[in-house]
C-alpha cells in the first residue's frame, strides 16, 4: 500500500506494469497482439490470394508443400483464408464492441444518474430486450436484413449492449450516493459536466473490462451468425462461414474445421484474459 502512495503520479505506466505483472493477462495480450498483427499483415505477405481457386490443388494436407496449412475444397490456401477471415471477424468484434459500449454506456449513465422516471423507463426497456434469448434476437434481425459486414456489426452491437447498460447503471447509481457527487453539485456544476467529467472517469475501469469481454462475445456471435449462413457471405471468408463449409468434409479433412475453430478459441480466450487482467489492474488503489 505504502508503495502505491509514494509512487509518483504516473497512473498510465503504473497501470501497464500492474497489468503485465499478471501472467494470464500478459499472455492474453500477447496472443491478441499476435493475432491482430498476423491478420493485418499476413494476407499481404503470403504469396496466395485467399479467394483464388485452384481445382488442381484441393484438400492438400497441412505442412506438405507450398501451402503451409493446406488447402480447402476449392484449392484455396487455408492460411491466407484464415488470416483474411480474421480481419473481418476481429473488425466486426471490435466495431460491435464500440457500438454496444456507446449505446449501453449512454443508457446506463443516464439511467443511473436520473433514477426517477427516466431511469425506470430506460431500465425496463433493457429488461425487455434481455427477455429475448440473444441468439434468436440476433437471427431474427439477421433474417430481416440483407447480410453484410455493416449489418452484421450493427446487429451484434445492438444485441450486446444491455449487459453494459446494466453494469454501468449499477455503477453510476452507487457513485451517485457518494459525497463527491453532492460536492460537485454544491460547486454549481451542471448535470452534463457531472456526468461526463465526474462520473465517466469513475466508470472507465468497468467499461474497459466490459469492452474486452464484449469483443470476445462479439467474435463468437459473428461466428454463430456466419455459421448459420446469415453473416459474412462466401466467397469472403470469416471464421464462422469457414466452419460451416468445413463440416461437409469434417471426416475426410478435419483441419478445415480445426483451424478456424482454433482461431476463434484463441481470440476469445485472449480477450477474456485481457478483461480479467484489466479488472484487477484498473482498481485505482490496486495494491499488488
Amino acid at each position: 500500500m505504502s508503495a502505491t502512495i509514494l509512487q509518483p503520479a504516473l497512473p498510465g505506466t503504473g497501470l501497464l506494469a500492474r497489468f503485465l505483472r499478471r501472467r494470464m493477462a500478459a499472455a492474453g495480450a500477447a496472443l491478441v497482439l499476435l493475432l491482430v498483427l498476423a491478420c493485418l499483415l499476413g494476407p499481404a505477405l503470403l504469396p496466395f490470394d485467399p479467394l483464388r481457386i485452384n481445382m488442381r490443388a484441393r484438400f492438400l494436407l497441412p505442412f506438405s508443400g507450398p501451402h503451409w496449412l493446406g488447402t480447402d475444397e476449392l484449392g484455396r490456401d487455408l492460411l491466407a483464408r484464415v488470416l483474411s477471415a480474421g480481419r473481418y471477424s476481429l473488425a466486426i468484434g471490435c466495431l460491435a464492441m464500440l457500438l454496444s459500449l456507446l449505446v449501453g454506456g449512454t443508457v446506463g449513465l443516464v439511467a443511473g444518474f436520473y433514477q426517477g422516471r427516466i431511469g425506470a423507463v430506460l431500465m425496463r426497456f433493457v429488461d425487455g430486450m434481455l427477455c429475448f434469448p440473444s441468439i434468436f434476437l440476433l437471427l431474427t434481425l439477421a433474417a430481416l436484413t440483407s447480410p453484410g459486414i455493416a449489418t452484421t456489426t450493427l446487429i451484434i452491437g445492438l444485441t450486446a449492449w444491455m449487459g453494459v447498460a446494466r453494469l454501468i447503471q449499477a455503477e453510476v447509481r452507487a457513485l451517485c450516493e457518494r459525497d463527491f457527487v453532492t460536492a460537485a453539485r454544491a460547486l454549481g456544476l451542471r448535470d452534463s459536466r457531472i456526468l461526463l467529467d465526474e462520473l465517466l472517469p469513475n466508470i472507465a475501469a468497468p467499461l474497459c473490462v466490459a469492452a474486452t469481454l464484449i469483443v470476445a462475445r462479439a467474435i463468437l456471435l459473428e461466428s454463430y451468425v456466419s455459421y448459420l449462413g446469415y453473416g459474412i457471405q462466401p466467397p469472403v471468408a470469416s471464421w464462422g462461414n469457414m466452419l460451416q463449409k468445413a463440416q461437409q468434409y469434417f471426416v475426410s479433412s478435419p483441419w478445415l474445421a480445426i483451424l478456424p475453430g482454433l482461431m476463434i478459441t484463441l481470440a476469445v480466450t485472449g480477450f477474456n484474459a485481457i478483461g480479467d487482467g484489466l479488472r484487477d489492474a484498473l482498481d485505482p488503489r490496486g495494491t499488488r
Binding site: 463527491f180 460536492a183 454544491a186 460547486l187 454549481g188 465526474e198 469513475n202 485505482p284 488503489r285
Partner: peptide, 21 residues
C-alpha cells in the same frame, strides 16, 4: 450561485473528492 457566491466544504474529504481526478 453555488460555488460562485456560496462555497461549501463537506465533512469527509476522502469521499467528497473524486477519486479518479
Amino acid at each position: 450561485l453555488r460555488g460562485r457566491r456560496i462555497g461549501v466544504v463537506f465533512q469527509d474529504p476522502m469521499s467528497s473528492l473524486n477519486p479518479v481526478l
